[in-house]
């Protein structure tokens, strides 16, 4: 059992919220709202806004999967509930 359920849950929520904010910023912000200013920047010959809409957001989602897993494992260790 986790010693401090409330604290564990708060830390968990913080990680989830961070993930959701990054998810929203990358998919809606970079891929849509800020697409024009980002298109002024080139990344490997592609416009950055276009790249985020087509590929960058997906790459970020995959990175988020592993980042979330890493942070949650750290959290489990901190509260002594690791597998």
């Amino acid at each position: 059992m986790v010693k401090d359920n409330s604290s564990y849950w708060q830390d968990n929520l913080r990680i989830i919220m961070t993930c959701l904010i990054i998810w929203f910023v990358v998919s809606y912000g970079f891929g849509l709202v800020l697409v024009e200013p980002l298109n002024a920047i080139k990344l490997g010959g592609y416009k950055l806004g276009f790249w985020f809409a087509q590929q960058g957001s997906i790459v970020t989602f995959v990175a988020l999967v592993f980042w979330y897993s890493y942070k949650m494992n750290q959290l489990d260790k901190k509260y002594g509930v690791e597998e």
């Binding site: 988020l64 999967v65 592993f66 979330y68 897993s69 949650m72 494992n73 489990d76 597998e83």
Partner: peptide
């Protein structure tokens, strides 16, 4: 582990 499964 369970967190990776949930995230995926």
């Amino acid at each position: 582990n369970k967190h990776t499964k949930i995230a995926i």
